[in-house]
Amino acid sequence: MSEEHTHIVPYKTFAIVWIGLLILTGVTVVVAQYNLGAMNIWVALGIATLKSGLVVAVFMHMKYENRLFKLSLFAALAILAIFIGLNFFDVLYR
């Protein structure tokens, strides 16, 4: 059982991540005020992905989990991407 009682994440790490998340929220709000054309949505998604990456890795302890967890998460996100992506063979060419 010892392998499972590893790593207590210190308060400080959480606080730093939280500040990072607030900054990124500010950035995404500011960027949205400028017209970047089609890039707006991609920048917004990029920042959201970064933020969710922080939450998953640190708040949700994914960083400290074993490979099975990481591979499974990857598989789930890949399948979601496929589900959304393949639709565009229909939507973009209709």
Binding site: T25, T28, I41, A44, K51, V56, F59, H61
Partner: peptide, 27 residues
């Protein structure tokens, strides 16, 4: 508690995407 926390973080995660997609789509 760990699992309850994981669930709560998921709620946060979804919102992280909902916020820019719905509220910040200005251009």
């Amino acid at each position: 508690l760990e699992n309850a926390g994981l669930y709560w973080h998921l709620v946060d995660l979804i919102w992280i995407f909902v916020f820019p997609l719905y509220y910040l789509i200005l251009h």
